[in-house]
Write a protein that binds this DNA or RNA. Structure first.
Lengths: 106, 106
DNA sequence: TATTCATATGTAAAATTATTCATATAAACT
DNA sequence: AGTTTATATGAATAATTTTACATATGAATA
């Protein structure tokens, strides 16, 4: 593409534009977990979660740490919390009816 | 899905996870523009840009305003600037080599 | 070093999203 | 009202992304 495209933004946001990955992030906000734990709690397959963890790691939204046999994933709280704050703010302003967005015509 | 999925987050981020829409946002950060103007500057078709403006409007990332024959689109600076600040911050910390991300193994 | 447990990866199929092209709508001006 | 200019929309196709399944890798321990 010959657009003045900001690659960073694209990678950043597309990493977050997936229900499984958002759910995973929500899980990890509670506490660090292994792939199997996330998979079990979300009722999904381990390999599926594993595939979805990859872009999250690549974008540094989560980090991983080996603990014995397990590999434990933790959230990058700084970025994620700041992001969620903005989303929350935006949603409160524009989607006040429990997630139903308001669009004003002009 | 039976996941504790945050619908708002998903819509929010998936709206931003597209090169054309990011490029459009970048254009509109400079100044408000019509569809044709954006399309011309990006070297894309008008209908294509029009299709891509729709989700941006629905998510209130941009607003539109009729001015005579034209319809002018403006950016929601508050949300967008706050977002970009976070992306920039994150990228500076984790992708210092001009967009090349750093992943630390553990 | 064989076995087990935990996780990652390759790849084909399924699902979703984007783009293109043709056409519809809508406002302004004659 | 008819014409022009600007934008939106529908729908088929193309492109991308996601998921599922089989299997590979890797660390720990018997």
């Amino acid at each position: 593409m010959k657009k003045p495209l900001n690659q960073t933004c694209y990678k950043f946001f597309s990493c977050l534009s997936n229900p499984t990955r958002i759910a995973t992030i929500e899980m990890l906000l509670e506490k660090p977990m292994s792939v199997n734990e996330i998979a079990f709690k979300l009722g999904e397959e381990q390999s599926m979660i594993s595939h979805n963890l990859k872009p999250l790691i690549e974008c540094n939204f989560i980090t991983s740490n080996r603990e014995g046999k397990k590999r434990v994933y933790s959230i990058n709280k700084e970025t994620i919390n700041n992001l969620l704050k903005i989303v929350k703010n935006h949603a409160e302003k524009y989607c006040p009816k429990s997630g139903k967005c308001i669009i004003k015509e002009n």
